[in-house]
Nucleic acid binder design. Structure first.
Lengths: 189, 189
DNA sequence: GTTATATACGGAGGAAGCCTCCGTTTAGCA
DNA sequence: TGCTAAACGGAGGCTTCCTCCGTATATAAC
């Protein structure tokens, strides 16, 4: 068994600062230029060396995850709220719309969404949040007896996200329609 | 107005050969390694210079389009057949399944599908085939009165493709379920 | 056959991005 | 005030993209 030694030292101030700075810069960059911006550009804009960026975030995926951790946590919180206050099916519908809204306004693109709904999402914190949220909502709606759930809950998300990935800007309205269709399609008669 | 001069010369035989060879090699490479293979590798495997590849196909997208032109045309043909022989709604369902099958077995990935269902798809031949097919099928099903079509037909495809792009291997079964949900969701009561 | 030339070939090389490695610097602690 | 673990930064190796242009050749004219 490996014993985890409590690190005596306090984390260095400059490290924490740079980390925060990188996250902020990256968020702006992703929003403006999509998930494929050069990481070197992010480092440059943050005024740190590329080595520093890679020390804090071992790869692009990790950076994306962290950048969108806020949004993911808000979505998770919203799920709890909706479950408490809405009919199960409406909670699900509303949350899916929320998801669309959160990410539509951020110009999130293929690569970024992959970090959240792709096959490895659950390995990382913010992907897991999203997955837990949709799972709970979907299970809840099923237990209510109003819908029949014969796809994985994440697949609902993937279907909706598919519109964003392959469609033109302004996909949100279509996504809302798609959500209604999906829910109607799962409804028990 | 520019007058298009008829080119007197017959196209060179070596050029046509290389073009065909490249297509064949690219098809294998895409199937084996996904849509992101190095184009240089394709050229190398085909035994031609990289310059030759780029002369025939100005970018990766163009190459992908051409590689899947066959499949696209077959899908278009299948659409006509289904329309002639099936109930409109079943024709739509069957064609969507066909789409899934065609591309699931080819390990087609994000980048490749973008060429077919992405925003610029209709600018190119094979994307247009697919779009025409799904449009006709969907309109037909709507005219039959069995379904209400309030999303763009292509969005149905995008939803289904979303599963493939962000899910694990073996997504086909889930995609079939998704198709059923979509159709049930569009059904008039 | 020869010859002329439009057409096609191939790969060197510039540009860009990814990521690692390691010598230098510095913040925290005693 | 000095020690040292922790953090910094960017040079450099690698990969891929794509362009450009000197060389080679298939076609057509004679």
């Amino acid at each position: 068994m490996t014993t985890k030694k409590a690190p005596a030292r306090k984390p260095r101030a400059d490290a924490e600062q740079n980390r925060a700075l990188l996250l902020e810069t990256a968020k702006a960059a992703f929003a403006e230029k999509g998930a494929a911006v050069a990481l070197e550009e992010i480092a440059r804009n943050a005024g740190v060396g590329i080595g520093t960026l890679y020390r804090h975030f071992p790869n692009r995926e990790a950076l994306l995850q962290e950048v969108y951790a806020d949004e993911s946590e808000k979505l998770a919180a919203a799920a709890e709220r909706l479950i408490a206050n809405e009919e199960p099916v409406e909670a699900l519908r509303e949350w899916l719309r929320l998801f669309v809204r959160y990410f539509a306004t951020k110009q999130l693109v293929i690569g970024a969404l992959n970090a959240l709904v792709g096959p490895d999402a659950k390995l990382q914190a913010s992907g897991a949040h999203v997955e837990t949220a949709i799972n709970t909502l979907a299970k809840n709606a099923e237990k209510s007896g109003d819908i029949k759930l014969d796809v994985a809950p994440m697949d609902l998300l993937r279907a909706v996200v598919g519109l964003s990935a392959y469609a033109k800007p302004g996909w949100e309205k279509n996504a809302y329609k798609m959500i209604d269709i999906l829910i109607a399609g799962m409804r028990r008669d």
